[in-house]
Amino acid sequence: MSETMTVSKQQIASKRGTLSTFWHDFRQRKVAFISFLFFVLLVILAVIGPYIVPFNPQTPDYNHVLQGMSQKHWAGTDEYGRDVLSRLIAGTRISLGIGISSVLIGAMAGTILGLVSGYFGKWVDKTIMRICDVLFAFPDILLAIGIVAILGPGLKNVIFAVAFFSVPSFARMVRGKTLEVKEMLFIEAEKSIGAKTNRIIFRHIFPETIPIIIVYLTMQVGTAILAAASLSFLGLGASPSSPDWGAMLSMSRDYIGTAFNLVFFPGLAIFLTVLSLNNLGDGLRDILDPKIKD
């Protein structure tokens, strides 16, 4: 239709690739940007947290059990007299660690499956997608509980369980993008110069799927943290003594009426982390791939 317009649109769309414009667009999205800053703060806490905590998060102090918020203990202390704030800060590493590592593992497996499924099609695609459908039929948390029930409780198994249930969503999404990209002319051009299948998939199709993977990764980390917390809450995850946010919630169940700070602060930590990751994911999606809405 109007050439000038399509040209200018194309230019805008294609220039998104460059880093500086990406940063510019990103800064424009206030919510996403604030979420990003919050996430950076969390990562810093996860790294240096154990060294800056005011109290040792593990050592009980039976002289100061179940204290409310005070100048000394900003978020109070738990039933063993441990400082809640210190435990929260130390727990950042566990929660983020579980969230990020499990999703990375899930994303890796899901991406490979999605690429293979989408590129080869036919029975390969059908098999992989049917298995994904089966997994989709279970609620995520139920699937995770099942896996942990089989493998036994513990952090490693929680990571594996959460990774496992994020595989099908990554596989399906990457497959969709692969189907779209493999029909593009530059893939045909690549075939016409004699490129082998591996090269086409990993060097040419995979880069095209990176934006949607990044977006989904971000959002999925929130879900993973939530799932890991739920597992810990149910007593299937981190050991109750470790400063995991979910485990802290689980421990403080009995004091919900008497010491609200024990429930409130871990809950708030989980809530803010998941919220910021979701907002960050939304923002990234709008910039990187305006086409995928949910």
């Binding site: 002319l185 530059f186 051009a189 110069i193 004699g194 490129a195 082998k196 095209e208």
Partner: peptide
């Protein structure tokens, strides 16, 4: 070798042009 109608669509959008042109060499 082939040359295509749409020069934009036939070039990998995420590769520098020197990489694009070096592709056939890397393969063969």
């Amino acid at each position: 070798q082939m040359i295509f109608q749409d020069p934009y669509a036939s070039l990998s959008p995420r590769m520098k042009i020197k990489e694009i042109i070096a592709e056939p060499l890397k393969i063969h």
